[in-house]
């Protein structure tokens, strides 16, 4: 069994990768993908802390991760619908080009 900090470092790395992507990439879908990666890093932390925690039989981490997965699904659906709506309106999916409030 690897030690706890191995999981925490992996999760931190995933979070940083997702953050880098969300900050760097211009395409709206890729920004969303970066955010999904960050959420996943949080999930990994929940599960790791649950497994290495004092009372794993309470299942708190597992349940939290499950709720988080459900919310991530909702987030992805709404986010992608927004991207499609934005594309319909502006004919672009590059976040830098969507800079007008005028409808």
């Amino acid at each position: 069994m690897p030690p706890l900090h191995a999981y925490l470092l992996l999760s931190a790395a995933l979070f940083a990768i997702g953050l880098a992507g969300a900050l760097t990439r211009r395409h709206a879908i890729l920004v969303l993908v970066g955010i999904e990666l960050m959420l996943n890093a949080a999930n990994l932390n929940f599960i790791a802390f649950w497994r290495y925690g004092a009372r794993p039989e309470a299942l708190t981490g597992v349940l939290f991760a499950m709720f988080s997965i459900g919310i991530a699904a909702a987030e992805a659906a709404v986010g992608l619908a927004l991207i499609i709506a934005v594309y319909r309106h502006f004919r672009t999916t590059t976040v830098n080009d969507v800079n007008e409030l005028r409808g």
């Binding site: 069994m1 030690p3 925490l8 931190a12 790395a13 940083a16 900050l23 290495y52 004092a54 794993p56």
Partner: peptide
Amino acid sequence: VAVLVFGCLAATVAGSGLAGREAP
């Protein structure tokens, strides 16, 4: 910025008392 965030997180993890924790 991302590298900085990773550095902060890694430093926190290393500095916390959790580092060598073994699984029950």
